[in-house]
Write a protein that binds this DNA or RNA. Sequence first.
DNA 1: GATGAATGAGATTTCATTCAT
DNA 2: AATGAATGAAATCTCATTCAT
Lengths: 218, 218, 218, 218
Amino acid sequence: MSEEDQRPPERARRLPRAVRERQILDAAVQVFSRHGYHAASMDEISDVAGVSKPMIYTYLGSKEDLFGACIRREATRLLEAIQAGVQPDLPPDMQLWHGLRSFYRFVAEYRESWTVLHRQALTVGGAFAAEITDMRARAIQLVAALVVSAGTRKGVGEQAEFSGEGLAASLVGGAESLADWALDHPDISDGVLASWMMNLVWLGFNDLIEGAVWKPSE
Amino acid sequence: MSEEDQRPPERARRLPRAVRERQILDAAVQVFSRHGYHAASMDEISDVAGVSKPMIYTYLGSKEDLFGACIRREATRLLEAIQAGVQPDLPPDMQLWHGLRSFYRFVAEYRESWTVLHRQALTVGGAFAAEITDMRARAIQLVAALVVSAGTRKGVGEQAEFSGEGLAASLVGGAESLADWALDHPDISDGVLASWMMNLVWLGFNDLIEGAVWKPSE
Amino acid sequence: MSEEDQRPPERARRLPRAVRERQILDAAVQVFSRHGYHAASMDEISDVAGVSKPMIYTYLGSKEDLFGACIRREATRLLEAIQAGVQPDLPPDMQLWHGLRSFYRFVAEYRESWTVLHRQALTVGGAFAAEITDMRARAIQLVAALVVSAGTRKGVGEQAEFSGEGLAASLVGGAESLADWALDHPDISDGVLASWMMNLVWLGFNDLIEGAVWKPSE
Amino acid sequence: MSEEDQRPPERARRLPRAVRERQILDAAVQVFSRHGYHAASMDEISDVAGVSKPMIYTYLGSKEDLFGACIRREATRLLEAIQAGVQPDLPPDMQLWHGLRSFYRFVAEYRESWTVLHRQALTVGGAFAAEITDMRARAIQLVAALVVSAGTRKGVGEQAEFSGEGLAASLVGGAESLADWALDHPDISDGVLASWMMNLVWLGFNDLIEGAVWKPSE
DNA sequence: GATGAATGAGATTTCATTCAT
DNA sequence: AATGAATGAAATCTCATTCAT
């Protein structure tokens, strides 16, 4: 009844839209990463965000829209983190190494972002799978370019034993898989992880471009 | 319209339990692989199986049980397919190569089995994720054993640049990732895919055990 | 393949219909008494009876029919047990006492029968509630007759303080309630239980017919 | 057709939670009392309440929770009604009489409450049966205390012919049974019903504490 | 006479989404 | 700007009941 009582309750304080959107996206990433797209409920997200459900719909649209916004934000973050670590004037192997380090640093620091991108995004099907697959394809082609550029410098073309894109696909997958493995081994630094990948892949690749080829002995 | 069509509709025929169970599992794998665990509905599965829902519950139990049965059947299939291809008296690299070929052959032939195992099983969480993770861990350790056995023959121990389990994790992940990639490139034979992996990994690994080490040049 | 193998399996031995019906009814009483009408399932009943479900439907009809058959059989048992204990040439109080003893003996010996009749039959509604209520009404009127016959012998009519049927209703209810109580106190003999009821009721009733009347003092 | 009918349909009006909860509980008591716990459907309850099913789950929880809420509300009502009628400074017989009157008044006025408590609550089994049995036990011990206090004033102890708790159990059961009987005889006032119970029981009990004992004459 | 196979119908429960204030 | 109130639609699962052999 007094004048002070007339301002709205603590929780309902009017915040600028951008702040609210960030709150909601943070909560959504957290919940989606825990339960996956389908098992996550808008109720839980609104609870975690400290915001009512209609607000989510007003600001970010449907559940699918919301998930899309999460995916895009986290993907952007990841790509920016990697790009920030890469110095384009270095030789290809060092570029790769720096990129990998940044990647493993990101995964360690933003587990939830990584989980959403890697594990949950593919299960939704339809547009998202495509989006993620696209992003992955871009990453793969980036790596492939790196690899091929190194290769062509030494005069190696596309052959039966060698496919830039295919190798890049497995490289990216291997790196991701090692990232998952590293989530359970947090004491291993990003530098060591990146070195493992380089040793596994670069040396092998180096042999390839030197003309060495493994063939079935039979 | 033909004479055969005049017998009672397929659906009503009384078939022995084992046959129905196979039908149901086939349908379930198909539907789970398309939509994932949560988005798949028992209604759709029963439709695809040509069987009423109660039969599913009578024969295979709850949705979770059904999913578990799918996972286990497909995992067994996959492992058997790989083991059938491996000849234990060959040298490690040939064992690996044959294993990979069998793997890629299986993935090409049973896309849905692979999708369920690779993409969908992890999203359920709880017991299944654990089961799959376990199976993957077994595969990783198998590979690690192969790799390490080759390594120790040449006197290479665990070092900072080298971790059997970590490398195996990335190798398995890389192989899986290449399998996914190959789903979109069906013209590439399993032999070629396996060779790529071998060239990427074995040569690289070979260098490692010869003492070559990649190090950041900076 | 040998000749012995051609007789039907143990369970399917052809038994005369009356035996099968008894088996089924026994099982049904057991299951209904445990779970009540609605929570009992035909599956459980057929399991307990060691008989397939279609057999139940063939011999005893629908679930409702089956329940009805149970109720009628157990009610008949109860009434016969009571009548067997009563000797019609004794004075009213001794008749009542003997009836009560037989009743408590029956309840102790056939807990399940009693449970079905007392607790479960009323929850079904419709025809059964009516049937049970009827049976109870007959018991009440029987007791009422006893009471009234004793009363009229002494010249006591229906008054405000006295209603044969009402009193009988509460008497029967009290006896039933004591039976329930006795289920948790199995060391108390039927004779003692019957005596309690007589002391509680008969003395009071005796006073009534002697002209004593309790009235609110206010 | 009248002007009032032109406002939006009753169902869509936004009412405060407390009001809706009351509506739902009222409907639930009605439906549970008609069909029993198992045969009652949430659909019918939501229809009767004029509310959609999700509201019921949001406000009152599962079907079992809802039933529990009904039981507790009605039990509280009943106990309060009885306690409101009892005056603790009166002699034991008058306390009993007033308690009985209040009880019969309540049963007449809230038939459905009584039905749910008396007939339906026991059939659910588990926690509710226990809860109801408990409440009944409290009532029984209350009466037992009354009876025994009157008895000990006259120096009557526990004997073979007399068990406070057993007698109280049958007294309570008799009172309940008379209540059921009275439901079909609505012209009989609560005062008369209470008097019947007093005449039946109190006189008998009075005899007991005076030393009179009924014994089988055989 | 006896049963394994099969299902229609309906139960409880949850969720994304929207009104009305 | 913000939310409590409200729901349509659909999910999983169970049960009484009947065919076909």
